[in-house]
Amino acid sequence: MIGDPVLRLSEVGKGFHGTTVLDGVSLDVPQGQFVALVGPSGAGKSTLLRLVNGMHLPDSGTVRTLGENPASCSRSRLRALRARVGFVFQQFGLVGRLSALENVLMGSLATLRLPRYGVMSYPRALRIRAVEHLDRVGLADRRFQRCDTLSGGQQQRVAVARTLLQSPELILADEPVASLDPAASVLVLETLKRISAEDGISVVCSLHQIELALATADRVVALRGGRLVLDEPAAGLTAERLREIYDTAGARDG
């Protein structure tokens, strides 16, 4: 298994209501790599990420995530697969009325049998681990604060801690900093990058901001109109070249 990619897309196509969103996209992501997925709105970035954890299923081509094909998984196998794949949302996906700690604990639901309500309904060992992960994102002292009283950047870091409690082998992040201010954006991306480097977790992160992508990622993949138009190491890329892609895309689509 060593050397196998954690994620492999082969000629994947997907459409909604007759509109093609992804068209023949192939992509391999090896272990431990931080991949930035860039491209204009509507390029298919969110759809691609949702194909990986089986929230959407492809119309053509195959997806292999951590050695499994989400399209052919049973309900319970799909849940087991999702437990191994972390997902970070643009809108955080936290329950505002609950404490940061309880939101983090939700990341462990796939390993528990019964529904849970309240921090004390989770096993002690999980609570200790959840606090450790909150500590890693720098929010251990906020654990009992209601999430809707945290700032946007803090909420996104709570969401990252929730993902970490899943002990993921792959993290997908869908525009994780699109609703944050620049300083918070940098902090959230640095947190993700540090975790990726320390734990050897692959991250696929869609981003709008070219500069952030170049500063954070090992590799940049660009989508345009559902097709893969660029796939290069971040080190050799310049902001001007990437911006060119956005501009020609604008010219062609407009």
Binding site: N53, A80, L81, R82, A83, F89, F92, G93, A159
Partner: peptide, 10 residues
Amino acid sequence: VPAEAARACG
């Protein structure tokens, strides 16, 4: 979104 996030956790 929170429900979707919990589903994505498995």
